[in-house]
Amino acid sequence: MAKKSIKIRAKAKKGVTTVKSLMSHPMETGLRKNSKTGKLIPAHFIQEVVATHVHDGGETVRMTTHWSGGVSKNPYLSFKFNGGKKGDKITLTWTDNKGGSESATAKIK
């Protein structure tokens, strides 16, 4: 897997934290054919993304998503939650259908 495959921007404003993220992943559905060989390209997509808010009081899961290969290549995910402040952290962890996994953490600005 490519390095730095998750990019996160998190911003707290008026008590609401907005998290935007971009993950590098081929998101192959398993239904697409290789244009040269005519063979199906095996499914390879992120199935789960868990977003955890790391704060003074501990850790809180703010969002859990389950995806199919119907999410675009190099997937984008954005969500909001009440709470969170500058300096807190957001950790995103994805797991794909082949068991691959990656995680990244960013500070809330």
Binding site: T60, R62, M63, T64, T65, H66, S78, K80
Partner: peptide, 25 residues
């Protein structure tokens, strides 16, 4: 209109606002 319509399921955790964005095929 996709053969398998479900693209994403977003489960809101504690405090999450019902507002999600993604990009789909």
């Amino acid at each position: 209109s996709n053969g398998q319509p479900l693209v994403g399921l977003f489960k809101l955790g504690e405090g999450a606002v019902a507002n999600v964005s993604t990009r789909i095929k």
